[in-house]
Amino acid sequence: MSEKKVRHILALSGGKDSSALAVYMKDKVPEMEYVFCDTGDELQETYDYLDKLEFYLRKKITRINSDRPFSHYLKLYRGVLPDSRTRWCTRMLKIKPYELFVGDDEVVSYVGIRADEPYRTGYISTKPGVRAVYPFRENNIRKADVFRILEESGLGVPAYYEWRSRSGCYFCFFQQRIEWVNLLERHPDLFKKAMEYEKNDPLTGERFTWVEGESLQELSMPHRVAQIKEQHEMRQAQMKQDRSNLSLGKIFESEEDDGEMPCLMCHL
Rank of each mutant, 00 (worst) to 15 (best):
W180T: 00
W163R: 13
F208V: 03
M195Q: 12
H187R: 15
L216T: 01
K193T: 14
F174K: 03
R186E: 15
L190Y: 07
P222D: 05
R164F: 11
A194M: 02
K199T: 14
C169S: 03
E218Y: 03
G154V: 04
H187G: 11
K192P: 00
F191N: 04
G154F: 08
M221G: 12
Q217L: 12
A159Y: 05
C172A: 06
Q217H: 11
E162L: 07
S153K: 07
E185H: 15
S153G: 04
G205P: 04
F208M: 09
R186C: 07
L219Q: 00
E185C: 14
W210D: 01
N182V: 15
E185W: 10
G168M: 08
L155P: 08
M195W: 05
Y161Q: 02
K192H: 15
I178P: 00
R186N: 15
F191D: 02
Y197G: 02
A194T: 01
A159T: 08
L203S: 09
K192T: 14
R207H: 12
E162Y: 01
A159I: 04
G156R: 11
S167W: 09
S220H: 05
H223A: 13
F208I: 04
L184G: 10
Q175Y: 07
V211S: 00
F191Q: 02
W210M: 01
D189T: 06
S153Q: 07
E152I: 09
C172H: 06
H187Y: 13
S165K: 11
D189L: 15
Y197R: 11
P188G: 15
F173S: 01
I178Y: 10
R207A: 14
E214C: 05
S215P: 01
Q176D: 13
R177L: 07
G168C: 10
Y170R: 04
R186V: 14
N182G: 14
W210I: 01
R164P: 05
E196M: 13
A194Q: 00
G154E: 09
E214V: 04
F208K: 11
N200K: 14
S215G: 08
H223W: 07
K193H: 09
F208Q: 12
N182S: 14
E206L: 14
K199G: 10
T209H: 03
L155S: 09
I178S: 02
G168L: 05
W180E: 02
F173Y: 15
L155Y: 08
F173I: 08
P222N: 04
A194K: 01
T209D: 03
G168W: 00
L219A: 03
M221C: 09
W180L: 06
V157I: 14
R224A: 03
F174Q: 02
S165H: 12
E185G: 13
E162K: 13
L183A: 07
